[in-house]
Amino acid sequence: MSDKRSERSETPTHKKRYLEILGDTIVPNQLLLSIIISIAISLGGYNLGLWFFPSIASENMITSYSLLLGITGTVLSLLFCSMIFKPKRILIEEETSFESMREVFEDLQLDAREELRLIEDDSITQKELEELGVLEHFRALGGEEKK
């Protein structure tokens, strides 16, 4: 992940090289190539099947087998394209802590004391949070506000 960042900082004014397709970023040329590969392998597999299977399979199964060969091609193209074109995503693994819990309460304009009271009034929820080990966080936050 770190080398991705440095790569970007070397060319800060580089053109907008990514496009967002279906909610994720791609590199245009790589997408074009992937589509060509996928169509070629899928249709190639299907037509290969139409040509090859008549010699070994019964007549009513030819198209089904060919379709199966085509879909195998589609799946292979998924694996192949994933191998040659790496994903363009930045994955940040978060460490959520007690601090951010306070932020959440502030952002949502929640009353931590009220929240704690509602949790403690309900024995089932209280037990659930206790088992999760987060009840103390709620207690700490609620107690803090009391002061």
Binding site: L22, I26, S34, V75, L78, F80, S82, F85, K86
Partner: peptide
């Protein structure tokens, strides 16, 4: 699994 490969797979399909 790259998005390029996913989009391409569905177009191919």
């Amino acid at each position: 699994v790259s998005q390029e490969a996913i989009v391409a797979m569905f177009i191919g399909l």
